[in-house]
Design a protein around this nucleic acid. Sequence first.
DNA 1: ATGGTGGTCCTACCA
Length: 269
Amino acid sequence: MDISLATWNINSVRLRMPLIEKFTAEFKPDVLCLQEIKCRNDDFPEKPLRKLGYEHFAINGQAGYHGVAIASRIPFHDVSIREFCGKGDSRHVSVALGPEKKPVVVHNFYVPAGGDEPDTAKNEKFAHKLDFLTEMTDWFGDPKAAHSDRMILVGDLNIAPLETDVWSHKQLLKVVSHTPVEVEHLSRVQASVSWQDAVRTHISPDEKLFTWWSYRARDWVTADRGRRLDHVWLSPGLGDACTTIDVVKDARGWQKPSDHVPILARLSL
DNA sequence: ATGGTGGTCCTACCA
């Protein structure tokens, strides 16, 4: 089974339907994983998505903030939502794709951004971010959770782990998203099931690579002060199933853009 | 240099 899967922090799904139309027309992903949909389940734009061929939905919405969803051309089963840190935030949804006998579980995450100050004593949002990552590590590492050995983890993890994942390693060492303590927490999540970073398998870690550019820059193209906050990871059971990765940088320049761009992964399962 | 912009839903809060 060959499938293509995209992950995109859309920053309000209702406002960005024209962008989703443009992106899906050009890249035709079978599975679309969205973060920051910023709407309730009932307000999710199922109708226009159905017209684009996405007829299967797994939505974990929330009014105003956060919210994740999976829209798919391929039927799925076992929709599951996990709540993290007992906060009632909508930051995870998963589905099982393909044959019931040998499914592939897709986990779609929106990790907390963590506020401005990288100090857990002064900033409870930063503490929440680290706690969230620890809970991810514990959950994926828990044998009782009985996770599949064929899993894809995608989403806005709000951490740029490598030096080449930010425009300036030195200048961002104390900036939330690239601090050593966050990178350490993320690497523990990664180690919990030996997740493989599919994006960096296909695009050399020597190369600067970003998926997010702030709205606050005067000229995002020229300044190019981006960060790689969005990720596609594969569990070892999927081996080298990922055949191509595209980071659609162009999307940052489209009309009324999200501050994140989509990543498209093609997989041979 | 402590702003800068953009989302939700109307007033602050979040990114």
